[in-house]
Amino acid sequence: MTDETTLERGTVQQRLEAILMIADEPIGLVSLSAAVGAPVPAVRQALESLVADYDGADDGTPRGFELREVGGGWRMYVRADFDDLVADYIGGQAPAKLSQAALETLAVIAYKQPVTRSQVAAIRAVNVDSVVRTLLARGLITEQFADPETGAINYGTTGLLMQQLGINSLDELPPISPLLDDGADGFDDFV
C-alpha cells in the first residue's frame, strides 16, 4: 500500500493510533471506521493487529500501554504493570491549585456521582472535557463504569480527593447549599 492516499494520510493503523491517542472515552468500531475513512472489517483487523503489537506478539516487548475494548468501544490505557509508576509520578508532581472550572466540576462529580461527563456539562452549562482530563490525571476522579446502553463513562471521586479534603466519607461533605431553595416547593400540588 504505497498509493498516494496512504502516503498522504497514513495507514489505517496509523490513523487509528492518531485518533485513539487523543480519545478520553472509548470509541466504537463504527465511529472509528468513519473517523479514519476505512471499512469496519479493515478497522477491526487493524485494531486486532495493534493489540497484538502492543502486547508484544511475535517475541516483541509489550509496550507500557495497551489498547482495550471497553464499554462498547476502544481506548488506550496504561498497562496495569505500570499503574503504580504512573500513580507515583502523578502524586509526586508539585501540587498545583485547581482552577475555578476544575473546582466546580469536581464539586458536581462529588455530589452527583456516578455522573457522566455530559451530565456534568449540562449542570455547568459549559464543555468540561479538558477539566475532566485534568482531574483524572491528578487522580482526584476516576472512571467507575461505562453505561451499558450508551457507553458513556461514569465518573466518581477517589480516595485521594477525600484524603486531600480531610474526610473519610462523602457523607461528610457539607450540604450543597442550605440557603438555596431545593426546588421542591409546589410539587405537593401534583401528587
Rank of each mutant, 00 (worst) to 15 (best):
S99W: 13
R79W: 00
D182I: 06
A125H: 09
D129R: 14
A146G: 09
A23F: 04
V12I: 15
L50T: 08
K112Y: 10
Q13G: 10
L165M: 12
T2C: 00
G64R: 15
P148E: 15
A121Q: 10
V120T: 07
V132M: 06
G64C: 04
L98C: 04
G28F: 08
T158R: 05
D59H: 14
G60Y: 06
M21G: 01
V191L: 12
G139W: 06
I141R: 03
G183E: 09
S118F: 05
Q13I: 05
G64T: 10
V108Q: 07
A35M: 13
F145D: 10
D81K: 12
Y89K: 11
T5K: 10
E4D: 09
L7P: 01
V40I: 13
P175Y: 01
P39D: 13
A152Y: 14
V70K: 01
A102H: 13
A35L: 13
R9Q: 14
A80D: 10
Q14K: 14
R75A: 14
G159I: 12
A107M: 08
K112H: 12
K112S: 11
F187N: 05
P178S: 15
F187R: 09
E4A: 08
K112T: 08
D55M: 02
L161Y: 03
Y54P: 00
S130H: 13
G186R: 11
R138H: 11
A110C: 02
L170E: 02
D81A: 12
T6C: 07
A121G: 12
Q113D: 02
V51C: 06
Y89S: 11
G60I: 00
P148A: 13
E69S: 08
S130Y: 09
G37Q: 10
Q119N: 10
Y77S: 05
V191C: 00
